[in-house]
């Protein structure tokens, strides 16, 4: 089985978020980058298939040279090959089209992408890959088993779960639950050394791509000061909740 895991290179979850260029660009100053957590859940499950059934695992990212450290981490965790499409990721359709172009050169049985990246939260790439390739698509997966040519996935739904079967090839939208946070792997030292020798192929983009333009980003308003209300003064609390916070 050949697995492709799509990796987004995203700011660390503890990063301070600021915008520049009239609030149209993310300020990357001093920001540490990580593997998008939803992608990492998928990568960890892919490693499980590799160890259990000898699947090969490729990782792909659309990004500039800075994303290579993130791809190397995926290699250190155990991926076999990495591919970087040499383009700045601008929108979901461009990213999906570039990944599909690479997929046409190497066929995959299973494509895993995080259900959304934690930076721009578009949540569209895995669906677009499925649409562009005609592969089946299961999103919000919290469980995945594969037997022969048949996948059994568990999807998270509002207030419940759904178990679905599908033949391969298949695109999976990964999230927490596919594996747990405690299952995530820290690269071991030997893995880091080996990652240096594993292939990281850089391919040129196939198209210009950008379809949408960001007009501006806006941060949520800063939290206001805390108001302390005397526990005896319920009327004041109700008045504040009704007139000021407008929640009741």
């Amino acid at each position: 089985m050949k697995i492709l895991v799509c990796i987004s290179h995203v700011p660390d979850t503890t990063s301070k978020i600021n915008f520049v260029e009239n609030d149209t660009q993310f300020d990357t100053q001093g920001v540490q980058y990580i593997i998008n957590p939803n992608d990492e859940f998928g990568l960890t499950r892919a490693m499980w298939f590799k160890e259990k059934s000898g699947a090969s695992v490729d990782v792909i990212s659309v990004g500039t040279a800075e994303t290579e450290a993130t791809l190397r981490k995926a290699l250190a965790i155990g991926a076999d090959n990495a591919i970087r499409v040499n383009a700045t990721a601008r929108d979901a359709q461009q990213v999906a089209k570039e990944i599909v172009a690479v997929m046409q050169e190497n066929s995959y049985d299973l494509v895993i992408a995080g259900r959304e990246s934690i930076d721009y939260n578009g949540g569209m790439v895995p669906g677009m890959i499925a649409a562009l390739t005609g592969m089946n698509y299961l999103n919000n997966c919290i469980g995945l088993e594969i037997e022969g040519n048949q996948a059994t996935a568990i999807r998270e739904m509002d207030g419940g779960k759904e178990t679905i079967t599908s033949p391969l090839p298949l695109v999976i939208g990964a999230q927490k639950g596919l594996v747990e946070e405690s299952d995530l792997r820290i690269p071991n030292m030997r893995g880091i050394m080996m990652a240096r020798k594993k292939p990281l192929t850089v391919v040129e983009p196939t198209q210009e791509g950008q379809q949408v333009q960001t007009v501006s980003f806006e941060k949520p308003a800063p939290k206001g000061a805390v108001k302390l209300v005397d526990p005896e003064n319920i009327d004041e609390l109700i008045s504040l909740l009704h007139n000021e916070a407008k929640v009741i």
Binding site: E68, A69, K73, P187, M189, M193
Partner: peptide, 9 residues
């Protein structure tokens, strides 16, 4: 990059 990877791990 390797040193950063060790530090990160």
């Amino acid at each position: 990059e390797e040193h950063k990877a060790v530090q990160q791990a």
